[in-house]
Amino acid sequence: MSDVKKIVLAEDNTTLSLLLKFRLEKEGYKLLIAVDGKEAVELIEQHDPELILTDIMMPYISGLEVISHVRNKLNKQTPIIVFSAAGQEEMVLKAFNLGANDFMGKPFSPNELVIRVKRLLR
């Protein structure tokens, strides 16, 4: 039984990705890491994860486009949490309009992220 829940994490800060991967894998999830939106979309199409974590500003394909791709092209209701930096309020609003479920403003505490992930995957 593949009870392990898969999470795709798209984030161009590789150290942060690694940190979150460790943290979330300790909680029993399987993490798939993408460094840009392009890779994220590929991973999502391949693995059909239970949750998507994505930064808003990334090279090549932005987080907004990832959301839009999941909701409109793939027609999936996979929960999505976006990460945003300060001063991107407008983008966060757009992300919600496109169908994001939650957001975390950077800098954030990894522990809090775990709580929100658990809540969405319950």
Binding site: L19, K106, P107, N111
Partner: peptide, 12 residues
């Protein structure tokens, strides 16, 4: 620096 910018709390 990169990591410190993105996280807060105990780890920071």
């Amino acid at each position: 620096l990169r990591l410190r910018n993105d996280i807060s709390g105990e780890m920071a």
